[in-house]
Design a binder for these strands. Structure first.
Length: 418
DNA sequence: TGACGTCAAGATCCG
DNA sequence: CGGATCTTGACGTCA
């Protein structure tokens, strides 16, 4: 059983992905971007290994214009060393990766150009996975597409276009229920007909349920039947609704109490869960810690070291409560711990608390900086007090010091990203 | 024609 | 120049 996250990391150095737009594209720029993005991918994989995250979706933006004539580079050859190096790390550390073309890759479009571009896009995605040398358990997730006033015909077109795909795509392709057109029942019917696995997405199923009065668990178990031994463990997508936004919007973070209930209801471990959530890897770590059998408080202490200055800035009261909570070294109060953090992050930040937290962080540097840095920092605090600049100006100064003086404790802190 | 979703790049304005 | 805040891009479907 693995829990993972999609595409991007939060608060991890040197893992950003670069892009460029169509009118600026040229080979030189593409080479630079690909080289950069592969280094970032390598760093993301290293982060996943370090944090025991064994499920990860690779961003479709890894190679800019990867399926477009704008990119004529044989990037899989040019960067074959990088791909095999990263692929080896993925395999040796039992990481399962996937890719997921977006809503604009529409295989069942009646427009031949659109459908052909979808084929090209799927070829691109399988080229990335093949270049990494990962086996067919590492899937490409696709939605069925549009309806065009005739669902039956649209489904038939999907089936027929699937049949014409390259085998390398076919053996990786899995299909997912979406939030408006194809519910889980539709997708299981298609998956069964084609003999390909189905990904159950809980939030899509909530918004776009099948008419039958069947539970979430029922559909998860029905979907399981579409996964054969060669496909690996069944995979599902799990997300929670952001109640302040429209139906289908992913929450900022996963509420672990609800996740623990969901996970418990599955009553099995032969399943992989891909989280779709704004805070990405942060929620992956939360969820992994929330259901682990290895209940050592050091894991929560490690998490606390990253969240503490954010919590101090948001709520000194919760800060003290969490310190209390972690005093009993024999305990493992994981749900309360993350609930406290979620509660603090939601609170509106008061300037006095911001200054207090900033001065705590300043404590790492005040005796080692030169006078220019000291004056710069104190001036920014002063300007913040007068309302001339935002707290981010102060935080940026502290961040630059953290990097310069290589304060590892602070470089891993979420203080600089919330 | 614009909304939908996503996130980086680009543009613009301020002091 | 750094920083804050828009706007654009890139994609296809649907109202």
């Amino acid at each position: 059983m693995s829990i993972g996250y999609a595409c991007l990391t939060i608060g991890v150095l040197n893992t950003n992905l670069k892009s460029c737009n169509a009118k600026n594209v040229c080979d030189e720029k593409l080479l630079d971007i690909i080289e950069h993005n592969l280094k970032s991918l390598e760093n993301m994989i290293a982060y996943n290994i370090k944090n025991s995250i064994h499920l990860f979706r690779i961003s479709s933006d890894l190679i800019s214009f990867g399926s477009s004539p704008l990119n004529k580079l044989h990037w899989w050859d040019i960067f074959s060393n990088e791909f095999s190096k990263i692929g080896r790390k993925i395999r040796e550390n039992n990481i399962r990766v996937s890719m997921h073309p977006g809503q604009y890759t529409v295989l069942n479009s009646p427009n031949k150009d659109v459908a052909n571009r979808a084929v090209e896009d799927l070829n691109y995605h399988s080229k990335v996975l093949d270049s990494l040398g990962v086996n067919v358990e590492n899937k490409i997730v696709l939605h069925i597409g549009g309806v065009y006033n005739d669902k039956k015909q649209a489904i038939n077109r999907f089936i027929s276009n699937y049949g014409n795909l390259d085998d390398r795509v076919k053996r990786r392709l899995v299909i997912e229920n979406d939030d408006k057109s194809y519910n889980i029942n539709d997708v299981i019917e298609i998956g069964t007909k084609l003999g390909i696995p189905v990904i159950f997405d809980n939030l899509h199923n909530e918004i776009n349920p099948c008419n039958e009065d069947k539970s979430e668990l029922y559909w998860i178990n029905e979907s399981k039947n579409t996964w054969k031994d060669k496909d690996g463990y069944q995979k599902i997508h799990y997300s929670q609704q952001d109640i302040s936004k429209k139906p289908g919007s992913h929450s900022n973070t996963i509420a672990v109490d609800r996740f623990v209930n969901f996970y418990g209801s599955l009553e099995r471990e032969d399943i992989d869960i891909m989280l779709e959530v704004k805070d990405k890897n942060l929620s992956a770590v939360k969820c992994i810690n929330s259901i682990t059998k290895d209940k050592r408080i050091s894991k929560l202490e490690n998490e606390w070291s990253k969240y503490k200055y954010t919590v101090l800035e948001s709520s000194p009261k919760v800060y003290l409560e969490i310190r209390n909570l972690l005093k009993d070294k024999k305990s493992y109060p994981v749900v309360q711990f993350y609930n406290y953090i979620d509660e603090a992050v939601k609170e509106e930040v008061i300037p006095g608390n911001s200054i207090n937290a900033a001065l705590h962080v300043w404590g790492y540097f005040k005796n080692i900086v030169d006078s220019r840095e000291k004056e710069g920092f104190l001036r920014s605090i002063d300007k913040y007090k007068k309302g001339e600049v935002s707290i981010n100006v102060v935080k940026n100064k502290l961040w630059k010091m953290a990097v310069k003086y290589d304060e590892r404790y602070l470089k891993d802190s979420y203080y600089f990203i919330f």
